[in-house]
Design a protein around this nucleic acid. Sequence first.
DNA 1: CGTTTCTTTGAGGATATTCAATTTATGTGG
DNA 2: CCACATAAATTGAATATCCTCAAAGAAACG
Lengths: 232, 232
Amino acid sequence: MDIGSRTELLRSVGLFRGLEREDLAAVAEAAREQPFSRDETLFSQGDDATHGFVVGWGRIRLDKVTPEGQNVVLRHMGPGDMIGIVAVLRRIPFPATPVALEDGLALSWSAGRFAELMNRFPPIALNAIDVVGGRVEELQRRLQEVATQRVEQRIAATLLRLANQSGRKVEDGIEIPFALSRQDLAEMTATTLHTVSRTLSAWDSEGIVESRRSSHLVIRRPHRLAEIAEHA
Amino acid sequence: MDIGSRTELLRSVGLFRGLEREDLAAVAEAAREQPFSRDETLFSQGDDATHGFVVGWGRIRLDKVTPEGQNVVLRHMGPGDMIGIVAVLRRIPFPATPVALEDGLALSWSAGRFAELMNRFPPIALNAIDVVGGRVEELQRRLQEVATQRVEQRIAATLLRLANQSGRKVEDGIEIPFALSRQDLAEMTATTLHTVSRTLSAWDSEGIVESRRSSHLVIRRPHRLAEIAEHA
DNA sequence: CGTTTCTTTGAGGATATTCAATTTATGTGG
DNA sequence: CCACATAAATTGAATATCCTCAAAGAAACG
């Protein structure tokens, strides 16, 4: 991948918004390419934060495991999202593990390189605050959700969120274009795979979603799902 | 309050770490003082973020209410904590409401003033990332907690956290030095005041805590509480 | 085509909520 | 300072929600 293509990629990355083309090129040049394949991890929770990443292509799931081994999915990420950069700046170990849901490519910068770039291009720091602020809001919303809503509502809200972030319109609804197991959904909604399975089975019967193991999940009646998410 | 005192105050504020004394004085001079009394709100969720704040003295509880009126306590704040600054920088309405738990004083800066200061003193932006990054971590931890632990464990963990943040050693344990109703604790731990009441009653009988309505809560056996939080 | 992984479904049970009533504190106006 | 009104806390009983345990079925994989 040449510098021109990298620069093009970085143009749509929130973290580098407001940088001139030539500045972006400098940032692009300082990057290292890191391809990844499905089920691979970019790094592991607890590792030293030596590098920060930005996703080029491919989807990634961010996992956080408890000392007892229970997993919670913190968020899903795709092209343009930054990964691990806050840990780099705070000089703390990575607090979570990014797992690739499909093959892809990330760009990375060493901690030192990153510091240089931020120093040279002040907008980066402001953009970083914006991005991290967005994550705070997202987490606050999820916390509120887990604290005040029932499982069915949370599953509905989660599916709608995934659809909003990554959904593709298909003939009979909105498709969530990556593998999504019952276990995954359970870890996103703070419940068990059993409850997710029961819920999706019911929704399948009612024609609200279509969810078989082989194919991607399709939301057939988003409006109904929104109703469930809101009132129950 | 004169500029000297304000400057002194700002010396211990994470957001302004690394600034020279004269820079701090400039920041202090640009601030407006905003006293507040118990139960007052600095602003309300949904308000336009015209000003950012830093707590001088006094404790504040940050609330977020759902459209249905259910409240979730996002965090407690005290001297040196910043409030609403991310919303100011992101140009979005305040996402939560800070309620004073006791009389106190905040310093505030207008959005425009803040932008100036960040421009003039680059360390502020980096510090902000650090602070906001810390909040992300805190929220991730709480999300994990709600997702994987039972109510009793969460209440125990919450009390220990409050003790760590604000606790005072007293003769027979650690005191949490502000009013803390069952309802408050319920909103912090994603449960109901009834369950909190039952739990504290039980702990009181076992001599783990001392919790009467008039006086502040005292943790008498922190170690036991830690056991409950960890294993249950 | 056997093995592994994921999913479904049932039955039983634990945890925590809801509903309801009472007790205890706090605050207020006489 | 007391009597009343208000707010907070306690506790019991009934119930809902969701989890755990268990087993079987279906799909993917080599």
